[in-house]
Amino acid sequence: MELDLADWGVPPEAQILSLTFTPQAEPGGGVLVPAALQQHLTKGPIAHVQRFVAWPLSGNPQTCEVTVGCVWLDSQAEVGMEPLVAAIESFSNKEYRAAVIPAMVAVEVKLNSVLAEHYSAFRAKKHAVDFLNDTPLAFQLDYLLPSLMNLVGAPPLGSEVTRQLKTLKGFRNDVAHTHRPMSGAATADALLSAIFGYRYLSLYGGRLSAGN
């Protein structure tokens, strides 16, 4: 049996992050094997064309439907998604130092994009970008972002996520300049804050430009 993911809407140039195959059984139809999972993050690139050979575990062969779940990263995804996925991949491979810098890059790219889009409604975008480049991340997280999000009715990012993002910035500087070792627990907290912060900006960032 052959499954070409392009036939089901997955772009040929997309990076497949995971595939899940879940057998479906009729009521009383017997025991099925658990769902099978392929993950790019731990097993290398996943092929867009999957080939299968059915083999009964016991007794007579039986047929059943299989639900296929696919998660992929489109080649046209926004710029910040690529370093975020790279950070998650490094963490999955227990390369904790390698996860820190791309995680911070993803958040900074997204945050600067959201804020620059808002401020460029009042000044030339170059001036907005220069202003943000000269503004420390802590100031952006503590003052600029909360005040602007409050004006458009978005919920706050949250003090714990804000604190962890500032911690991640410190980790990023230490890894870049002193090659500091990173524990799995510290990296997990920092990476989760990056994922949460990125998703927060994706969900609510558009309100800033819409409100201009």
Rank of each mutant, 00 (worst) to 15 (best):
Y143R: 12
L168A: 11
W8L: 02
G153S: 05
A86C: 08
G170N: 14
R123C: 09
G59V: 07
G28L: 01
T67C: 09
M182E: 07
T67M: 14
F139N: 12
E160F: 05
T22N: 05
S58C: 09
G80I: 00
K94Q: 09
P56E: 05
P56H: 07
G69W: 15
G69Y: 13
L73V: 01
Q50F: 07
F139K: 15
L3W: 06
E2I: 12
L157Y: 04
G197Q: 02
A106G: 02
W72A: 11
R97G: 12
S147C: 06
G44A: 07
T178H: 14
E78V: 03
D134R: 15
R97E: 06
G184M: 05
V49H: 14
M1L: 12
A185Y: 10
L191M: 03
L151N: 12
L37Q: 14
A176F: 09
R123E: 14
T22L: 04
S90R: 11
A190W: 01
A176E: 11
I16D: 07
P136A: 05
K110Y: 05
I195A: 08
M182L: 04
A14T: 06
Q140A: 08
S183Y: 03
L208V: 00
D189S: 04
A47Q: 15
N133M: 08
T167S: 10
S92P: 00
W8C: 04
F91H: 11
S147R: 15
K110H: 13
G197S: 02
G9T: 02
S18D: 10
G28Y: 04
S58I: 10
F52L: 02
T67S: 13
G158F: 06
V129N: 09
V71H: 13
V79G: 01
L208D: 01
I88C: 11
G184H: 05
I46D: 06
H127M: 10
T187N: 02
R51I: 02
S183W: 05
P56K: 04
A210W: 08
I16S: 01
D74F: 09
A188W: 04
N212E: 12
P56T: 00
L201T: 03
Y119R: 08
L37W: 10
F122S: 11
L201D: 05
V33Y: 15
G69F: 11
L17E: 13
A124F: 09
F52G: 02
A6F: 05
K43Y: 08
M81P: 00
V10D: 07
L192N: 14
M182Q: 09
I88Y: 06
L115P: 08
R207G: 09
N93Q: 15
A36F: 09
L19R: 15
T67V: 12
D4N: 14
S193M: 03
L148T: 01
V68M: 13
F139Q: 14
L84W: 00
H48N: 10
P156L: 07
A6Q: 13
T63L: 11
E2H: 12
G30N: 07
V49S: 15
F139E: 15
